[in-house]
Design a protein around this nucleic acid. Structure first.
Length: 485
RNA sequence: GUCCCUAUCGUCUAGAGGCCUAGGACAACACCCUUUCACGGUGUGAACCGGGGUUCGAAUCCCCGUGGGGACGCCA
C-alpha cells in the first residue's frame, strides 16, 4: 500500500496502473488542530461519495506535521465525527508524522537533483523583505537570493545557521489545470515564489507532504476546499519536478455561516458532534450537506445510497453557500418521522439519562416515540415530550386555575370511574371519553385539556386517548387521584 | 496592495442561447383538516447585481464595473 522507496521502476508501475484501471482514489486530509466541523464534513462527504460512486477508495489522512498545534484529542474528535456520519474510510487513517523518513528521503533526492536548494535567509531578513514589498504594493514573496543559477555567485552561508530547503519553482510560463468544479484555472509562475519544503529543523511543510502523500497513496482526485486553490499550482510544479503523475483537482467553495459571513469558531463552525448533542439524526445532517452546493434536479430528500448513485462533480455550485438551520430542521423532522420507533426509543433513553432520568423502561420509550415522532423537529424535543411520562409533573398553578374548573373536575371524576375498570385498549378509551362527554354535556376539548394538564402538566399533547393508552391505567389513575384528591 | 475564485426569490438551488410569463425546496403568509398543539394538504407573495457588447434571440457567451469570498506563513 504505502511504499517507502520511490524508485523509477515503481513510478512506472504507478503511472501504468492509473492509466489502465482508472481507479478513483480520493482522500480527506484534515489537520488535527480542532474538531470536524460542518465544512470539513461536507468535503469529506463529497470525496467519499465520489470514490463510492466510481467504485474506488476513500482514504483518510491526518495532516499532523504541525506538531505545535496538533493534538490527539483533535484526532479523536475527527474520527468520532466521521464515524457518527458513517463516512468510513477504505484506507487509513494515515499519519504524516509517521512518514517523516519518506519525506526526508524525497527532500534529499530533490537537493541532489537540484530541484530544491538550501536557503540561509533568516526570519528577520524575510520579514524585512516582505515589509518592503508590501510598502511597494507588491505581493510579498521570497526573492530567490539563495537560489542557484548558472553563472550566479551565491552568498557564503553564515556560520551556525540551519538552512531551510526551498523548492526551485519555475520562473516563467503558467500553471493551468481544469478544475473539476471551477473549470480552467491558470496562474502565472511569476506569481509563485520558491516556497519552503523543509523547515530549519528539517521537518517538511504542508505543500510538500501533501504532494508526496498524494503521489504515494495514488490519489487520483483531490477534492478539497477552495482555500487550497492557491496551493494547487505549487503542488503541480512540485509533482512535475518529481516526475509524478498529476491527480485531477476539484475545489469546493466554502460554507458560510447563517449570517453570510465566514464560519468561525465563534459562530457556525461547531463540531459535527454538536449536532448529535442538539438532537439531529446523522442522516438529516448528511442529506442537508449533500444539497449544500450540489444538486440533482429538484430532488431534496434522498438516502445516502441514492446520493452515491447520483453524485457527480458536474452539478456542484462554484459559489459559496450559506448555512440554513431551518432547512436542516425540516430534514431532521422528516427523518425522525420516518425513523424506526425502537431507535427513537433508544435516543429518548440516552437523552433522558443525560438529564438524570433513569428507569425509563415503562412506558416503553418506543411507544412514546410513536406518539410524538411526527410533531418534533429534533430528538431533544422528543426526549422533552417523553419526560413527563416518567416524571409526574406538578400542573403549573396558572394552568390549574384556568383549566381545572369545577365543571372540569366533575368531568374528570366521572372519567376516572369509567377508566378504573377499562382495559385501556383504544376502543374502551374512546368509549369512556365519549360517555363522559355525554354525561357532562361538555365538548371534547373541555375534557381533554384539563386531562392533559393533570397528566402531563401541559395543555398540548397528541390525541388524549393515545396518551392514556401509552401511560397505562395505573399511572393515569395515580395522577388523577393525586390532583383531584 | 497583488493574485485567484464567485454572483438566479430572505436561504439552498434548477437552468448547458429559443423549452423561462425563470422551476423546485426551506422559511413567510393565507386557507383546509382537527380533540388542543403539531403533522399533513392546498394556495399566495418572493429572484436572473449594474453597464456594455456578441446574436434574429441572452439568466445562459464575452468585456468592464460593483458586491462577496479565498490566498499571499519555517500553518494546514
Amino acid at each position: 500500500m504505502l511504499r517507502n522507496a520511490g524508485s523509477a521502476a515503481h513510478v512506472k508501475i504507478r503511472i501504468f496502473s492509473c492509466l489502465s484501471t482508472m481507479t478513483v482514489r480520493t482522500r480527506f486530509a484534515p489537520s488535527p488542530t480542532g474538531y470536524l466541523h460542518i465544512g470539513g464534513a461536507r468535503t469529506a462527504l463529497f470525496a467519499w461519495a465520489y470514490a463510492r460512486h466510481h467504485g474506488g477508495q476513500f482514504i483518510l489522512r491526518i495532516e499532523d506535521t504541525d506538531i505545535e498545534r496538533s493534538t490527539p484529542e483533535a484526532v479523536q474528535a475527527i474520527l468520532d465525527g466521521m464515524r457518527w456520519l458513517r463516512l468510513t474510510p477504505d484506507e487509513g487513517p494515515f499519519f504524516q508524522t509517521q512518514r517523516m523518513m519518506r519525506y526526508k528521503e524525497v527532500i534529499q533526492q530533490m537537493l541532489a537533483a537540484g530541484t530544491a536548494y538550501r536557503c540561509y535567509m533568516s526570519k528577520e531578513e524575510l520579514d524585512a523583505l516582505r515589509a518592503e514589498q508590501e510598502a511597494r504594493h507588491e505581493k510579498p514573496r521570497y526573492d530567490g537570493r539563495w537560489r542557484p543559477e548558472p553563472g550566479k555567485t551565491l552568498p557564503t552561508p553564515p556560520a551556525g545557521v540551519q538552512p531551510v530547503v526551498r523548492f526551485r519553482n519555475p520562473t516563467d510560463g503558467v500553471v493551468a489545470w481544469d478544475d473539476l468544479v471551477k473549470g480552467r484555472i491558470e496562474i502565472s509562475n511569476a506569481e509563485l515564489d520558491d516556497f519552503i519544503i523543509a523547515r530549519a529543523d528539517g521537518t517538511p511543510t504542508y505543500n510538500f507532504c501533501v504532494v508526496v502523500d498524494d503521489w504515494d497513496m495514488r490519489i487520483s482526485h483531490v477534492i478539497r476546499g477552495d482555500d487550497h486553490v492557491n496551493n494547487t499550482p505549487r503542488q503541480i510544479n512540485l509533482l512535475r519536478a518529481l516526475g509524478a503523475p498529476l491527480p485531477r483537482y476539484g475545489h469546493l467553495s466554502m460554507i458560510l455561516g447563517p449570517d453570510g459571513t465566514k464560519l468561525s469558531k465563534r459562530h457556525g463552525a461547531v463540531s459535527v458532534m454538536q449536532y448529535d448533542e442538539d438532537g439531529y439524526l446523522p442522516e438529516a445532517v448528511l442529506n442537508y450537506l449533500a444539497r449544500l452546493g450540489w444538486s440533482h434536479g429538484d430532488d431534496e430528500i434522498f438516502s445516502m445510497e441514492q446520493f452515491v448513485q447520483w453524485f457527480d462533480l458536474d452539478h456542484i455550485t462554484s459559489s459559496a453557500a450559506q448555512f440554513n438551520t431551518e432547512k436542516l430542521n425540516w430534514l431532521n423532522a422528516h427523518y425522525i418521522k420516518h425513523c424506526d420507533d425502537a431507535r427513537l426509543g433508544q435516543e429518548i433513553r440516552r437523552r433522558l439519562a443525560r438529564e438524570g432520568v433513569t428507569g425509563t423502561a415503562f412506558p416503553d420509550p418506543a411507544a412514546i416515540a410513536a406518539l410524538y415522532k411526527d410533531r418534533v423537529q429534533n430528538l431533544n424535543e422528543l426526549a422533552d415530550a417523553a419526560h413527563p411520562f416518567y416524571v409526574a409533573p406538578h400542573p403549573p398553578a396558572e394552568l390549574a386555575t384556568q383549566h381545572l374548573t369545577e365543571a372540569a373536575r366533575a368531568a374528570l371524576r366521572d372519567l376516572r370511574c369509567r377508566l378504573a375498570s377499562a382495559d385501556f385498549s383504544p376502543e374502551t378509551l374512546a368509549k369512556a371519553l365519549k360517555e363522559t362527554l355525554a354525561a357532562t354535556g361538555l365538548k371534547m376539548p373541555q375534557v381533554a385539556i384539563p386531562l392533559r394538564v393533570v397528566l402531563l402538566g401541559q395543555t398540548q399533547s397528541p390525541s388524549i386517548d393515545r396518551v392514556l393508552a401509552v401511560m397505562g391505567r395505573e399511572e393515569v389513575l395515580k395522577r388523577l387521584d393525586r390532583v383531584m384528591g
